Simulated scan of single mutants.
Amino acid sequence: MKKIKEVLVVEGKDDTKAINRAVNADTIETRGSAIDDDTLALIEKLADQRGIIIFTDPDFSGEKIRKIVAEAVPNAKHAFLPKKEGRPDKAGGSLGVEHATPEAIRAALAHVYTETEAAPELISHADLVTAGLIGGAGAKQRREQLGELLQIGYVNGKQLEKRLRMFGIQPAEFGAALAKLPPLKEDLHAE
């Protein structure tokens, strides 16, 4: 079983159990999105000693925790679980790391990103509009699919630009992921 050097920041004990079925790793649990000062101080200490990987649920609360921890630890690494991998029954129900298969957890941890401060804009707002990721019919679904392909999690239109820049997604990687998305509706009538 693969050993992870960094400490994984997760939401709860069920997440820890799921991770331990997939990899050999230490975790620290936030116990929800109201992270107390002691837990945040411990996360900061662990970040200095071993490094951390933020691995929260692919939902609103998980994103809130990710933002709080990333603000306190700017050099934190990030791993993202696709929404479809965090649902035990693909029709709905609860969503989270605790429901992911060991394979899905290992895949998410194989693609870890570190935020890059002052990263240059490699993919412009106009590129995102042209790609049908902002402001058009089906943009939300395309962003969700792109987030899964790039393993950067789901974000709304405003945050997509920022996350692509933060994680230094290169134009070639972006283009390769776009090529895997279904064609835009306008493209179907271009012939």
Rank of each mutant, 00 (worst) to 15 (best):
M1Q: 12
K3T: 14
K3Q: 11
I4S: 07
V7C: 07
L8Q: 10
L8C: 09
V9R: 13
V9F: 07
V9H: 11
V10D: 02
E11L: 09
E11K: 13
G12S: 06
K13Y: 15
N20P: 05
N20I: 00
N20L: 12
R21I: 04
A22G: 12
A22M: 14
V23D: 11
D26P: 00
D26A: 11
D26G: 10
T27Y: 07
E29R: 12
T30Y: 14
T30C: 08
R31V: 09
G32D: 05
S33R: 09
S33Y: 10
A34I: 06
D36Q: 09
D38I: 14
D38Y: 10
T39C: 15
T39P: 08
T39I: 13
L40E: 06
A41Q: 09
E44C: 10
L46F: 11
D48P: 04
Q49N: 15
I52W: 09
I54E: 06
F55R: 04
F55N: 06
T56G: 02
T56E: 01
D57Y: 10
P58R: 12
D59E: 15
D59T: 14
F60D: 03
S61C: 06
G62W: 04
I65P: 11
I65V: 15
I68D: 01
V69P: 06
V69Q: 04
A70P: 02
V73Y: 05
V73D: 06
V73N: 08
A76S: 13
K77P: 01
F80L: 05
K83D: 01
R87K: 15
D89G: 01
K90G: 04
K90T: 08
G93T: 13
S94C: 00
E98L: 05
E98Q: 15
H99F: 15
A100F: 14
T101H: 08
E103L: 10
E103T: 05
E103H: 12
A104R: 15
A104E: 04
A104K: 13
A104V: 11
A108H: 13
A108F: 13
A110H: 07
V112K: 15
T114Y: 03
A118M: 11
P120W: 02
E121P: 00
I123E: 00
S124W: 01
H125K: 14
A126M: 07
L128D: 03
L128I: 05
V129G: 00
A131I: 02
A131W: 02
G132L: 01
I134F: 07
I134E: 01
G136F: 00
G136C: 10
A139R: 05
L146W: 02
L146K: 03
E148Q: 10
E148W: 04
L150T: 00
I152S: 03
G153T: 12
G153R: 10
Y154Q: 10
Y154T: 02
Y154A: 08
N156G: 13
N156R: 03
N156T: 07
N156I: 04
G157E: 13
K158M: 11
Q159V: 01
E161W: 01
M166I: 01
M166R: 09
M166W: 08
I169N: 03
P171L: 05
A172K: 09
A172E: 12
E173I: 06
E173H: 05
G175Q: 15
G175R: 12
K180R: 13
P182Q: 03
K185W: 11
E186P: 03
D187H: 14
D187Q: 13
L188G: 00
E191V: 06
